[in-house]
Computed example of a mutant assay.
Amino acid sequence: MQKRRFAMVAVLLVFLAGCTQTGMYPMYPEQKPRIVFSDWYLRGVFNWWEAKPAYQLQRGNSKWYVDVELIADGQPYDFKFSNANWTLSQTCGGSYKGLRVILSEPTVLSCAEQAENLQFIPKTTATYRFAVTGNTDSQIILTITQL
């Protein structure tokens, strides 16, 4: 009887010891990588989704921007922001697929796995400024204006 009780206590102790292990997962939240705006490109149907130098963001006073000439044909332009390698942590877009960006209205971007294609439909053929502000510690805001 004592051997059996001892065996049950030993099994219970082994079980409880296993429950106290933290394993390989840290107990603190994972930090999101900071977006590197200087490495970002505006990528979309207007440039075949490529990271072309003409579409790399430039630093302004309080924002990063790129100017793009768009033709107003009534069709939406799909686009996102990312670096040259499409690094997931450096890719930002809409919170859902086809989120429509309205001229001069700020739009909050979603990054990493949540980044879906944004859409913009220009009303007139012109040059448009795609400007972003913010950082990963707060929100990244996109505003498109006509120049």
Rank of each mutant, 00 (worst) to 15 (best):
G98M: 02
K97I: 02
G93D: 08
P53E: 09
G60M: 08
V66N: 11
T87W: 03
D78V: 10
I71G: 05
P76R: 08
Q90F: 00
W86Y: 13
Y77E: 06
P76Y: 08
A84D: 13
Y96M: 06
R100H: 10
Q58G: 10
W86M: 13
G74H: 02
P76A: 10
A54T: 07
W86I: 08
G93F: 06
Q75C: 07
N61G: 15
Q58M: 12
D78N: 14
Y77V: 10
G60Y: 09
P76Q: 09
A84F: 07
G93A: 09
Q56K: 15
Q56H: 11
L70S: 01
F81A: 12
G60S: 13
S89M: 00
T91W: 00
A84G: 09
N83R: 05
Y96S: 11
Q90E: 01
Q56G: 13
S82Q: 05
R59I: 08
L99W: 04
K52N: 15
L70N: 01
N83V: 05
S89A: 06
A84C: 08
G60C: 10
Q58P: 07
W86K: 11
V68I: 11
W64H: 15
Y65L: 11
F81H: 13
K97E: 06
W86C: 09
N85I: 00
T91S: 05
P53T: 06
A84Y: 08
W64E: 14
D73R: 05
S82I: 03
S89H: 01
T91K: 02
T87I: 10
G98T: 02
Y55F: 13
